[in-house]
Design a protein around this nucleic acid. Sequence first.
DNA 1: AAGATTACCTGAAGGC
DNA 2: TGCCTTCAGGTAATCT
Length: 281
Amino acid sequence: MPELPEVEAVAVALRANLTGRRLDGIRVPFAGVLDQSVRRTRSALVGRILSGVHRHGKYLILAFDPEESVDVEAGEIASNCLMIHLRMTGQIFIQDDYTPDKHVHVILDFAGLPVHYRDIRKFGRLTLVDDPITPSALSHVGPDMLEVRFTSWLDRVADRRAPIKAMLLDQGIAAGLGNIYVDESLFLAGVHPLSRPVDLTRDELHEIWRRAKQVLRLAIRHGGTTFLNFANFHGKPGNFRRKLRVYGRAGQPCRDCRNELVKIQVAGRSSVFCPLCQPAR
DNA sequence: AAGATTACCTGAAGGC
DNA sequence: TGCCTTCAGGTAATCT
């Protein structure tokens, strides 16, 4: 499941290998993953130079050099970027010897370098957007979890009554955390996933915010977590999986206290935690 | 109006 | 062996 660290790994690799290259063509074996038509997507992007690669939360944004034919002063909006969300099972491969299978839905041909978009469950989307940094398509998404300041984040959660786990998963509050890193963050902070922000102290909330950033940065350094469906740019697995404290370890002993880890449902998601290290309030 | 639930998809895994 | 059910979870849409 690609979350912020996995998307960051893809962004770094694409940036290093594709910046300055021209997009020669787009092949679309399955158009259902495109938000716009194949014709519209091709006419907006083919022939243009990739100028930069950005990431916001779990969103990946490929920015192209400005299109001179668009009359901005006349109110025309340029589709300067391709925004990609991998959702559950999206993968991006670039190696030359990769043979597309039935799950490869889009191939971006960058000056002879094929970039394969593969997605078993077809949840991911590729969307034409206007601005590379603050696209209007992301107006409902909050600040990146790695960037948000504590006071800003606190303002967004302090008066909420849903479980803290639901708040951390809510991309409108801060973007980037998914089920894996939320469970890891709450374990490190020693907070029960059902705790409500209104019942937590400012110090406890600060610890959650700090641990979330810490676990994201650590996962980035390890190339992300390979669980079921993520592989990085070169098809190599990330190696953060063996560092996981609670995710995927229900029934196994807590790495700190050896008590058995428990799985419950919170915000519609399976949630693994340690009843001793993360006591209910 | 926030919070909760469901739809979207496919493959792996477990039960019998 | 094979059929069936359950589970996995990011986001948008739809409920209460």
